[in-house]
Amino acid sequence: MKKTILWSTVPLAIAMFSYFDTSKAFDFETLVFQVTMPGIDEELMFRAILLGLLLKSFKDKFTIFKINLGNPSVLFVALLFGLVHGIHVSNNLKVGFEFVSFSGSFTFGYIWGWVTLMSRSILQAVVSHNLTNFIMSLLRMVN
């Protein structure tokens, strides 16, 4: 339990770098949204439903060159989570890809997937996800 709580705080620590990102105007509605919804709906979709289904489909251990990478379903769900956040479609239907958004979301998704798997609950991932989004938004607003 201590290990999963510790890993749940890693995205929060990384979120502190949002202070150096482009600033945005203060918006209380955005902060309320970020502290409630994304963690709930995304964690339910990616970690509860998708991860739960894939855990039953894949083997428990995945090894490459004698290195145990754990369950591949966590990696697969993190990849999908990163792609959902990295691929953007503009108003004129032009598709774009932002590597920074993808890599950050992939990393956070992998951590939250691992935390969900080890704790057997999405509660820590939901709280960590919501707080991470809230801190990232707030730091951009006070910048």
Rank of each mutant, 00 (worst) to 15 (best):
residue 2 K to A: 14
residue 4 T to H: 13
residue 6 L to M: 14
residue 10 V to T: 12
residue 12 L to D: 04
residue 14 I to R: 04
residue 19 Y to Q: 12
residue 19 Y to H: 07
residue 20 F to V: 09
residue 21 D to I: 08
residue 24 K to N: 05
residue 30 T to Q: 05
residue 33 F to Y: 15
residue 34 Q to G: 02
residue 34 Q to F: 10
residue 35 V to H: 04
residue 38 P to R: 04
residue 44 L to A: 06
residue 47 R to H: 08
residue 47 R to P: 04
residue 48 A to K: 11
residue 48 A to N: 06
residue 49 I to P: 01
residue 53 L to S: 05
residue 57 S to L: 14
residue 59 K to H: 14
residue 61 K to S: 14
residue 62 F to S: 06
residue 65 F to G: 13
residue 66 K to P: 05
residue 67 I to H: 09
residue 70 G to D: 13
residue 71 N to M: 03
residue 73 S to N: 02
residue 73 S to V: 00
residue 74 V to N: 10
residue 75 L to V: 13
residue 77 V to M: 07
residue 78 A to W: 13
residue 79 L to I: 08
residue 82 G to M: 00
residue 84 V to G: 00
residue 85 H to I: 07
residue 86 G to L: 00
residue 91 N to H: 10
residue 91 N to P: 01
residue 91 N to Q: 15
residue 93 L to I: 13
residue 94 K to V: 14
residue 98 E to V: 14
residue 104 G to I: 12
residue 105 S to A: 12
residue 105 S to L: 09
residue 108 F to I: 02
residue 112 W to H: 15
residue 112 W to E: 07
residue 113 G to D: 07
residue 113 G to P: 02
residue 113 G to K: 06
residue 114 W to G: 08
residue 114 W to Y: 15
residue 115 V to K: 04
residue 120 R to L: 09
residue 120 R to G: 03
residue 122 I to P: 08
residue 122 I to F: 09
residue 123 L to P: 03
residue 124 Q to S: 11
residue 125 A to C: 07
residue 126 V to P: 12
residue 127 V to M: 14
residue 127 V to P: 13
residue 129 H to Q: 04
residue 129 H to M: 06
residue 130 N to K: 11
residue 131 L to I: 10
residue 132 T to Y: 11
residue 133 N to F: 01
residue 134 F to A: 05
residue 137 S to W: 05
residue 138 L to Q: 02
residue 138 L to G: 07
